[in-house]
């Protein structure tokens, strides 16, 4: 039987993304920046107008000098956006800027570009995942299960799945949301708390999910640090992480940035993973642009 990646229709894509590491990275980076710039309302109009044209030039640039200069211009746009909206933009605004800087440095190194970007990706993933893990461990709110419990109670997670077992769940969720909205709009001093309706098994599920998320983050951190021994398993872990987060929250742009870092980490021994990363990024960006999400995730 013909392997999936060798099927006639997929073969050109498979070969390109497996062999052209840096060119594929530049295309993926351009696609993510394009979606980021066109879907976030706080990006200034001028940046939305200019950056897409820079990205087209970047994708087609072949020389080191052209790539570095264009990446510098795009990074400048990303950096100015971070500077202007430092306490307003989502964390992936920072993340894509770091990725852009790392790509610029890598492209300047010419023949060593793949090795440099792989090193940068490992550092970025391990630092960001590691410090995000610490943020969870030092947060009493998260560790009590309140964050995940609140998401379940408000229908932000698994609303459709839960309603398969508990038919009144959509109405209960709606009541919970209305109660909190009313609390937020109540003049200060006229009431400071509202009870929510949450079945006991959902409270238990919240605790299980809270610790499952912690352990999965620890596992990914370990996989990245032990990537030389684990090989492809490191990439399966990154993809599994993305799949788990995708099933819980609509974080397409952020998840595509995790995938591009995973793609950047691949080498000659693990380049089989490259096609999966590219397909994952393409899927997430298309879904983000179209505003779609599989109904079962709610």
């Amino acid at each position: 039987m013909t392997p999936f990646r060798e099927r006639p229709i997929l073969q050109p894509l498979s070969r390109f993304v497996s062999e052209e590491h840096i060119r594929t990275l530049l295309i993926l980076f351009s696609a993510i920046v394009f979606v980021f710039f066109t879907t976030k309302e706080y990006i200034p109009f001028a940046a939305r107008l200019v950056v897409p044209f820079l990205l087209i030039l970047l994708m087609t640039a072949g020389e080191v000098k052209q790539r570095v200069v264009l990446l510098f211009c795009v990074v400048l746009g990303l950096g100015l956006n971070v500077w202007a909206n430092y306490y307003v933009i989502a964390n992936h605004g920072f993340m894509i800027t770091y990725i852009g800087i790392a790509l610029m440095i890598a492209c300047a190194s010419g023949a060593q570009a793949s090795a440099v970007i792989a090193r940068a990706a490992v550092l970025l993933i391990s630092i960001l995942m590691g410090l995000a893990l610490i943020q969870k461990l030092v947060s009493p709110h998260y560790m009590s299960g309140a964050l995940v419990g609140g998401y379940l109670a408000n229908g932000y997670m698994f609303k459709t799945l839960i309603s398969l077992f508990y038919s009144n769940w959509p109405e209960v969720v709606q009541q919970n949301l209305l109660a909190q909205k009313a609390l937020l709009s109540m003049p200060p001093g006229q009431g400071n708390s509202v009870p929510l309706t949450v079945p006991p098994y959902l409270q238990l599920l919240a605790i299980i999910l809270t610790y499952a998320a912690l352990f999965s983050q620890i596992a990914i951190e370990a996989c990245v640090l032990l990537r030389a021994r684990l090989g492809m398993w490191t990439h399966y872990a990154v993809m599994l992480f993305v799949l788990i987060i995708y099933s819980t929250r609509n974080e397409n742009v952020f998840l595509s940035m995790n995938l591009i870092l995973g793609y950047a980490m691949t080498d000659e021994h693990t380049k089989k993973a490259r096609l999966w990363y590219v397909m994952g990024i393409a899927y997430l960006l298309v879904m983000e642009m179209m505003g779609l999400r599989p109904g079962i995730f709610g």
Binding site: N91, L128, S139, G150, A213
Partner: peptide, 26 residues
């Protein structure tokens, strides 16, 4: 009072979001 979600600290999904906050004038 900086939110865990903002400022590039990757503390999202640990603490309440901005949508859980309200601003009043006295």
């Amino acid at each position: 009072p900086l939110l865990a979600w903002k400022g590039g600290g990757f503390g999202m999904y640990t603490e309440p979001h901005a949508e859980d906050r309200g601003v009043w004038l006295r």
